[in-house]
């Protein structure tokens, strides 16, 4: 398991600089750790609410035949911004520390 070091704000900065990668091996390990969850319940995704223009934050319900959990107050106009927002949510959940 990858230990997520809350002091490694340099990796956070590197991700925000280039959310789509390619990432350094060290940052890729961190990103993989934040992205990989065996149980998909509550996993963050985005829904393309306006094709090629708008993406809305959502969470997987973890069960079939069940409504997506939509966060209509978190709408993005670029996938880069969506990547940064989900990274932030996951980082904060993993470390307990708030990112600016």
């Amino acid at each position: 398991m990858t230990y997520i070091d809350p002091d490694r704000r340099d990796l956070v900065a590197a991700f925000n600089e280039n959310p789509h990668g390619p990432h350094s091996p060290e940052l890729q390990r961190l990103v993989n750790a934040l992205r990989f969850e065996l149980d998909t319940t509550g996993k963050y995704v985005v829904v393309n609410t306006k094709p090629h223009e708008e993406w809305t934050l959502a969470q997987l319900p973890g069960m079939r035949d069940t409504a997506m959990i939509m966060h209509h107050d978190h709408v993005f106009t670029s996938l880069e911004d969506a990547e940064r927002a989900i990274f932030k949510l996951r980082w904060e959940a993993a470390t307990g520390e708030t990112l600016e």
């Binding site: 789509h20 990668g21 993989n32 992205r35 990989f36 969850e37 065996l38 149980d39 998909t40 996993k43 963050y44 995704v45 985005v46 829904v47 393309n48 993406w55 959502a58 997987l60 319900p61 079939r64 035949d65 069940t66 409504a67 997506m68 996938l79 969506a82 990547e83 989900i86």
Partner: peptide
Amino acid sequence: RTDINMPFAEVKEGGITVLSAEDVFLQENA
């Protein structure tokens, strides 16, 4: 529905999972 149901979908893609209106419909209508 692999992007929704497979736990490794996001790490495989190397980016957040982006769902379409069709994906959402299929998730909600099995």
